[in-house]
Design a binder for these strands. Structure first.
Lengths: 331, 331
DNA sequence: CTGTTAGCGCATTCAA
DNA sequence: TTGAATGCGCTAACAG
C-alpha cells in the first residue's frame, strides 16, 4: 500500500507509439512541427499509458521548477494565513506550486530554510520580521529572485500601510469630538510600529488641540485588559489599541469594571480579525487585506521570474471599518 | 536583481580539488571510504566554492525528493492552520520539505492538485472533506503513499475524536443537573457529524431521563444567533453548539435578549478557537489539538515512506475545557 | 581507496 | 518532419 504508483516514462510511450523519444517530447510540448497523424498516435499512446512528463526530470533539464518557496515565521499566525492563501491561489492559477517553511520564529532557521527551499524552487517570498537588517541583506543576494513581505530591503516588497488607516481612525475619533486619545503601544520591534508612531505624530501636529498619550501595553488580550487602569488614569476618552486582541482585552475589562463602551470610552482596534465584528459592541478597526497582500506578493515575484522589474514597493491599504465601539465622548 | 544566484556544480568542485566527481559525491554524502586528507581537500574546495548538491539532480537519481505534499480545502480555515503548522514543523525536523495546495473547496481541483503535487514529492497528506467516497477511492491508489486527515478510506488516516469529548460535555451538563439539552446541528455532510450523533445516542440510552433535542442551526456565528428562539422554545436548559462560532452567536443573542448565561442557559461549544476563552462568560468547549493532528499525520506518512505500515487509523482526543458558560440549571 | 562509466527522465540540438 | 545523440547534475555500480 505504501508503494509509489509506477508512472510511465517517455521511453515507454515512444515504444508504444513506435516513434522516438524526441517525437513524444515534441507532441507533449505542443510543438507543431509534427505530422498530425503521428501526433494523434502519440497522444493516444500517452493516454492509454496514463503518461505525463516527470516534473523532476523536466525541472533538471529546463532549469526551472514551476515552484516558489515561502518562508513564514509562524503558520498559526492569522496574518500569514490569509497571506498564504492569497499567495497560494494566485500562484496555482498561474501553474506554480508552493513550497512552505515555518521558521518557528527562529532567526537562524529563517536563513537556512530560505536558502534550502530556494534551491528547490524558482523564487522566494520571504516573511522574516525578526531577522536583523544585516542578516537580511546577506541572505537576499543568495536567494534572488525574492520578494519581501511587510519589510523593506534590497528587494521588491509588498507591505500593508499602517500609517494611513491609523491616521484615518484618529481623524474619525477627532471628528467625533475626542481631544485626548490613548495609544496602547505593542511590540516596539514590529515593522509596523514606526508607521504607527508616524501616524500619531502627524495627528499631533495637524489636529488642533489633539493630545495622544502613549501607554505601554502589549500585543494580546491580557495586555489590553491589564491596561485599563492606566487608560482611565490618563483621562483619555478614546483608545487606539495596538491590535484587535488588545482592544478586545481592554473592552472586556472595561465591561467588567462597569465602564460603558462607547459611552464612557471609545475603543478602536487594528487588523479586523474574524471575531472583531462579534464583540459587544462590535469593534471599530482597520481591515488588513492579507489575502490581497499574498496575491500581490505573487504578482511581484512573477514579474521577477519573467525578467521584468516590479515596483520596488507595493502597498495595500487597510480599510477602516467603523462599528459600534467608537462614539462621541461623554457629555 | 532577478537573476538566479549561480551555484557551483559537483564538476567544478571536482576540478578545483583535482579529484573525480565520484570522490566529491562520496565526501558530500559522508562515505567513509575516502582518504581523510583527500576528503579534507574536497571539503575545503566545496566550502570556498559555496557548493552543495543540487537537490533536483539528486531527486532524479535517488528517486526521492525529501518533500511531501499537503492538500487542504482552505488555508484560511483554522482547523487546517494548526494542522499545517504541526505537520510542517514535524516534517522539517525530519529533513523534509512541504508542498502545499489550497483546493479552494473545489472537489475536482482537489483531485488534480493531489495528483500533480504528488509527482513532485514522496508522499501525500490529503484533507479532502468534500470529495465523494468513490472519487476518493479512485484517487487513493494513484497517490500512495498517502495519509488521510479527518476522513476514513483505504489508506492510513489521522482524525480527531468528536464522540468522546462531546459525550464528556454531555456528562458534564448532566452532572450539573441538566435533563433537557439542545443540540445545535451544523453541517450534515461533515465527517464529524456521525460521531456527534453517536455521542448523542449514547447519552440518550445511558443517562436516565436525559432528553436531547436536535435543532437545525448551522456552522457560523449568525446561525447560532438565529437559533435562540428555537432554543428557548425547546425548554432546554443547556445547549451543545455545533462549534464555537455557533456557540458564540447564541451567547451573543442570549445576552442581547437578556437571557443570562449560564444562569438561565448553559452553552458549550466545540473546537476551542483562540477567542473562546475571551467571551463573557468564557466558553466551555473541547480543544481539538490540530497541531498534534498534523504531527501525527507526518508520523504516519513517515512510517509509510520507511516501508512500515502505520496504524490504520490514529486518533487524537480533544480535551474538554470547562469555563464559565456552563453551570447548574436555574432553581 | 579512487576513477570511469552508466544511467535517472527529459528537452533540444544536430543530421538526415 | 523525424530520429540519434548530447547533457542537465548527480549517485552508484563497476573496475582498477
Amino acid at each position: 500500500m505504501a508503494a509509489a504508483p509506477k508512472q510511465a516514462t517517455i521511453t515507454q510511450v515512444a515504444a508504444h507509439a513506435g516513434v522516438s523519444l524526441a517525437t513524444v517530447s515534441r507532441v507533449m510540448n505542443g510543438n507543431t512541427s509534427v505530422d498530425p497523424a503521428l501526433a494523434e498516435r502519440v497522444k493516444s499512446s500517452a493516454a492509454t499509458l496514463g503518461y505525463s512528463a516527470n516534473p523532476l526530470a523536466r525541472s533538471l533539464v529546463l532549469g526551472r521548477t514551476q515552484t516558489i518557496s515561502v518562508v513564514v515565521p509562524d503558520l498559526a499566525n492569522p496574518t500569514f494565513q490569509g497571506m498564504l492563501r492569497g499567495l497560494s491561489r494566485a500562484a496555482v492559477a498561474d501553474g506554480y506550486h508552493v513550497l512552505i517553511s515555518d521558521s518557528d520564529e527562529h532567526e537562524d532557521e529563517e536563513r537556512v530554510l530560505a536558502l534550502e527551499s530556494r534551491r528547490r524552487s524558482d523564487g522566494l517570498i520571504l516573511c522574516a520580521p525578526r531577522m536583523s537588517d544585516a542578516a537580511l541583506a546577506d541572505v537576499l543576494g543568495e536567494v534572488a529572485p525574492v520578494v519581501l513581505v511587510n519589510r523593506a530591503g534590497a528587494a521588491p516588497s509588498v507591505a500593508a500601510d499602517y500609517r494611513t488607516p491609523l491616521r484615518a481612525i484618529i481623524d474619525h475619533l477627532y471628528g467625533l469630538g475626542h481631544r485626548r486619545i490613548a495609544y496602547l503601544a505593542g511590540s516596539r520591534h514590529s515593522a509596523s510600529n514606526a508607521q504607527r508612531l508616524a501616524a500619531l505624530d502627524d495627528a499631533r501636529t495637524q489636529l488642533a488641540a489633539c493630545e495622544i498619550v502613549e501607554i505601554p501595553a502589549g500585543v494580546d488580550f491580557a495586555a489590553g485588559a491589564a491596561s485599563l487602569s492606566a487608560v482611565l488614569d490618563s483621562g483619555a476618552t478614546a483608545v487606539l489599541a495596538f491590535n484587535d486582541l488588545t482592544a478586545m482585552g481592554l473592552l472586556s475589562a472595561a465591561t467588567d469594571r462597569g465602564v460603558s463602551v462607547p459611552g464612557q470610552l471609545s475603543i478602536a482596534g487594528f487588523d479586523d480579525i474574524p471575531f472583531a465584528r462579534y464583540t459587544s459592541p462590535a469593534l471599530t478597526t482597520a481591515a488588513v487585506p492579507t489575502s490581497q497582500l499574498g496575491a500581490h506578493a505573487w504578482a511581484a515575484l512573477r514579474s521577477l521570474l519573467q525578467g521584468r522589474e516590479p515596483a520596488a514597493e507595493l502597498t495595500v491599504v487597510p480599510e477602516v471599518i467603523l462599528r459600534g465601539s467608537t462614539a462621541p465622548p461623554a457629555r
